[in-house]
Design a protein around this nucleic acid. Structure first.
Length: 942
RNA sequence: GCCGGGGUACCCGAGUGGUCAAAGGGGGUGGAUUCAAGCUCCUCUGCAUAUUGCUUCGCAGGUUCGAAUCCUGCCCCCGGCACCA
């Protein structure tokens, strides 16, 4: 290869694609559509390897689908609202808008350098009023329909971010973004009623292709529990409270009830009584505790008696009402019926406070109703001890249903499905987000901003770092009431930025429309997203909000799509090795490489860890592109691991991939230099290549990118090398396969492929990026035979080489010649008969009598043949794969094939001569026919 | 505790009843080419061995003519949920 070969001018190709407008999604036409999307990025200033991996995957899919005749929508934009920009503004001065624009410009440039085939004409950015106007419009629509509402509620407050957080955004009691502590705070906030769609979100999971773990995660998060809501009255009063339980079958065992100390009824029950003081103490203890701490402390169960009694809805029994620190007001109804015999928590509590425990289920059908309860029996059981007729003996779901029916007929309960997911808290006390389009008027109350006044734009005259920035802008805060015209006050909270990302995929379908959020026809034409690629970190937040929003917008009549994304692919992490101390179990910063563990002084090993700034094991995409080019980086990233698997960054592997690229770059010239005649190998390469195209399509259709790249960049080279090795040099074969090979190569390394495409003799100025892949003909039986013969030779050589090594030890020197002994024809005949027998459905063991009747087994060798069958042929019959079986049944003449190739075989094995004989024939003097099998000749070296 | 995903050779990683001592890549090895290095091509890379045998796909059993693959139990890793009503 010439070392002075110029690198592929990637930037030039990118410019040409751009000028030719190749990747603009069309707005009509009869082609089927394909919507390929990656989670739109937050515009930090630098592209990292995670981005590169994500987009390399998406781009390969988009390019492939275009080539397969689809109208592809493959857009890119920015999730440009959010706190990093605002925090940067606070710490370094400046304005979030400017910082965001600056970062966007820089990351855009880096993304473009990779040559991804985006339709940049549809680029959207969340912080553009043309975009966020529609967030506001949706919000007012939701307000009208009751889906959005304002409530005073205890909310999660992140101290360091200075804002409230949605439930989903609190991880282990800490803020998902800054990891700071989260407190409970009572505030008036805006909520969107996501639970209204909980059932649909739950059921929809069965209609889409998400990875199993993502579905499981979403189901957990939605938290469906089926049960009953039951009304308990308070003795000597009109008061009632509701409890939710998944176990109505244990209702007769309820010996007390527990309310959350902050339950709306609690204070009323104890005020002015001797129990007030105890309640107050418990109340004060829990009320300021974050939910996380509360749950964490649940093992320290504590309760106080209220002095009041509840009425059991079915028996009318008086049961004491307690307050418990383990009951949380915002979960379910904030009250529980306590069944100590069949619930562990209630059991512990009853023991602690000496409350009666009543068995109402037995775990065996004939179990004793009076058996003592030493530990809560929480499994399903048969009802016993029901104080009312008609329940004893019922089991499980049957029992639950019957209890529910009884409650329903008394009007004291009903079947109910409870969800863990709670309304989406969308208010944020931050600046860099969509202003909530609401005006608070003294006389009219809450008034949404009319559509004609949208968007409510973010003002520039704000002060950062002193509470809610929008409150510092007088021009923003003061506004006339849209209803009465009086002076009123604008809502100063902004929306959670997940609002932006929950519908951007719809906007892409009609991104430049300023009349409506998106045209219905456009949305319906492109939706759902066919292929959505992004990180697992969005499995519950973004992916739930987006699914919810799609359904909510559908119900506004804006689209017919039920789900946003059909197939989700979560790409694996990009890892790189980092110092690791096995005894301390910690991964350390790369600064420690080569030194002993700073904690225990043990020598450090290495371990693969997610690329992160704190460990310092990051690799800069820019630097890699500079060194090797975008194509090499893409090839490496797609080939190093399956899209969903974690991949380890390896500099040596990257270099190896670069060598592959250099080698590929030289191929067109190499092919052009071919000047040989046509040969029998031509048919082989043609058939082989044809098969490769089929395999490639199959792999791409299944998003098995690694396999696809392996075929286009590795296997085909090997095939061609073999062809050349076997004497093939036919230029017409070269020009026949070259265009399709170029197309396959273009999916992952598009720049190189354009060089190839342009190098063709009859190049017409088109791009491979716009070409259509011609589907190869299906493989013919003749192709099969051609491929099989060659495979036979390759297998033979492999076997021969192994044997040769050992043989030469015996010979005490280099072997000079070999006699190849083809298996005697009766063995192949036997194999054919057996294969036929099994194909017909016969059990291998029953083949013996069949064989005994065959003509070959009639002579004096009958015994030998029967033994051979049992010992050798039977196991072998099963070892042959479909291809080999086909070959055995086919016309392929082993002797002929090897004979034809004997010169090649001799030179490949470094022998002077190779003779091929049929075992047990007159010309076979070796007496080694015994070990020869069909497709596996014996070889005798000398 | 519950749910989901995993455990394959020096490393990464394919493989879901026979093509499996197990693809491919990395790393390593030997050879061809070269004045030489690099690149490229070819070989080998569990152990033994004239073409075959033995051991091996987390561990232990089982089903089968045949198990990395199916079943049962166990161990370990990753992710999620969790005194949840």
């Amino acid at each position: 290869m010439s070392s002075e070969m110029l690198p592929v001018d990637e930037v030039a190709w990118q410019k040409k694609w751009d000028e030719a407008d190749l990747f603009k999604a069309t707005t009509g036409g009869g082609k089927p559509t394909f919507y390929c999307l990656e989670m739109y990025p937050y515009p930090s200033g630098k592209m990292h390897m995670g981005h590169v991996r994500n987009y390399s995957i998406g781009d390969a899919v988009a390019r492939y689908k275009r080539m397969m005749g689809f109208d592809v929508l493959y857009p890119m934009g920015f999730d440009s609202f959010g706190m990093p920009a605002e925090n940067a503004a606070i710490s370094e001065g400046g304005h979030p808008h400017d910082i965001t624009e600056r970062n966007m410009a820089s990351i855009t440039q880096q993304i473009k350098r990779m040559g991804f085939s985006y339709d940049w004409s549809r680029t959207l950015k969340s912080h553009d009023p043309r975009y966020y106007k529609w967030n506001q419009w949706f919000f007012t629509k939701f307000y009208e329909s009751g889906l959005a509402r304002r409530e005073f509620a205890p909310v999660n407050w992140c101290v360091s971010c200075n804002t409230v957080l949605a439930n989903e955004q609190v991880k282990a009691g800490r803020c998902w973004r800054c990891n700071g502590p989260v407190e409970q705070k009572g505030m008036s906030q805006w909520f969107i009623d996501l639970p209204a769609y909980a059932q649909e979100l739950h059921d929809g999971l069965d209609t889409i292709k998400f990875p199993e773990h993502v579905k499981s995660l979403q189901r957990d998060w939605l938290g469906r529990s089926e049960g009953a809501e039951i009304t308990f009255g308070v003795v000597d009063s009109d008061l009632t409270f509701e409890v939710f339980t998944t176990r109505p079958d244990t209702l007769f065992g309820a010996t007390f009830a527990t309310l959350a100390p902050e339950h709306p009824l609690s204070e009323q029950l104890v005020t002015g009584t001797e129990f007030e003081e105890d309640w107050k103490r418990l109340y004060d203890e829990v009320v300021n505790m974050s939910e996380f701490d509360r749950i964490k402390n649940m093992n320290k169960k504590k309760g106080v008696f209220s002095g009041k009694y509840a009425v059991h809805p079915l028996t009318g029994d008086r049961i004491p009402i307690w307050f418990g620190n383990f009951v949380i007001a915002t979960y379910g109804t904030g009250a529980v019926m306590a069944v100590p015999a069949h619930d562990e928590r209630d059991h512990d509590f009853a023991k602690m406070y000496d409350i009666p425990i009543k068995r109402v289920l037995v775990m065996q059908e004939d179990g004793s109703p009076d058996a003592p309860v030493n530990r809560a029996d929480v499994d399903d059981g048969w009802m016993v001890n029901s104080s009312v007729e008609g329940f004893d003996g019922l089991y499980g779901q049957d029992a639950r249903d019957t209890v529910c029916s009884a409650l329903e007929s008394k009007g004291l309960g009903r079947r109910e499905v409870n969800w863990k997911i709670r309304p989406w808290l969308v208010s944020r006390q931050r600046y860099w987000g969509t202003p909530i389009p609401i005006i608070h008027c003294e006389s009219c109350g809450v008034v949404p901003v009319p559509e004609k006044d949208l968007p409510v734009e973010l003002p520039r005259d704000v002060v950062f770092g002193k509470g809610n920035p929008l409150e510092t802008s007088p021009t923003f805060v003061h506004a006339p009431c849209p209803a009465c015209g009086e002076d009123a006050r604008r809502e100063t909270d902004t929306m959670d930025t997940f609002m932006d990302s929950s519908w951007y995929f719809l906007r892409y379908t009609d991104a430049m429309n300023d009349e409506v959020c998106f045209g219905k026809a456009a949305a319906d034409r492109w939706m759902m997203v066919d292929f959505y690629c992004g990180g697992i970190e969005h499995a519950q937040m973004h992916l739930i909000y987006a699914r919810f929003m799609t359904k909510a917008l559908r119900d506004l009549g804006l689209t017919i799509a039920d789900e946003p994304f059909y197939e989700l692919l979560c790409q694996g992490m990009v890892n790189k090795s980092a110092p690791y101390c096995a005894s301390c179990g910690v991964t350390l910063s790369v600064d420690h490489a080569g030194s002993p563990c700073p904690h225990c002084d043990a020598p450090l090993g290495e371990r693969s860890a997610k690329m992160s700034k704190s460990i310092g094991n990051t690799v800069s995409p820019e630097a890699m592109i500079e060194l090797y080019g975008a194509d090499t980086v893409r090839l490496f990233i797609l080939f190093a691991a399956n899209p969903t698997a974690g991949m380890d960054w390896s500099d040596t592997a990257l270099e190896a991939n670069h060598r592959v690229m250099l080698q590929l770059q030289a191929w067109p010239e190499q092919l052009r230099s071919w000047n040989g005649p046509s040969s029998p190998m031509d048919a082989w390469l043609t058939a082989r290549f044809n098969k490769r195209v089929h395999e490639f399509i199959h792999a791409m259709d299944n998003f098995d990118l690694r396999r696809a790249v392996e075929i286009s960049h590795y296997e085909i080279i090997k095939d061609i090398n073999w062809y050349v090795r076997r004497g093939g040099q036919n230029p017409s074969v070269a020009s026949q396969i070259f265009p399709q090979w170029t197309q396959m190569v273009s999916v992952s390394t598009p720049h190189l492929a354009e060089d190839w495409w342009a190098s063709r003799e009859h190049h017409d100025g088109t791009f491979v990026a716009e070409s259509q892949l011609e589907l190869p003909a299906s493989t013919t039986p003749k192709d099969h035979l051609t491929l099989a013969s060659e495979q036979y030779i390759r297998d033979f050589l492999e076997q021969a080489r192994k044997v040769q090594n050992i043989a030469e030890r015996h010979l005490g020197g280099q072997a000079k010649s070999a006699i190849v002994v083809i298996s005697p024809s009766w063995k192949r005949e036997m194999a054919r008969a057996a294969l036929g027998f099994i194909t017909e459905g016969g059990h291998p063991k029953q083949f013996v009598p069949v064989l005994a009747q065959m003509p070959m087994a009639q002579g004096e060798r009958k015994g030998e043949m029967m033994t051979f069958w049992g010992k050798k042929m039977l196991p072998q019959v099963f070892k042959w794969d479909d291809a080999s079986r086909e070959v055995i049944v086919s016309e392929l003449d082993e002797q002929q094939v090897l004979q034809h190739a004997s010169k090649f075989i001799a030179s490949d094995l470094n022998l002077e001569s190779v003779t091929v004989v049929v075992g047990e024939s007159d010309s076979d003097t070796t007496e080694r026919a015994g070990s020869a099998m069909p497709l596996s000749p014996a070889i005798v070296y000398s």
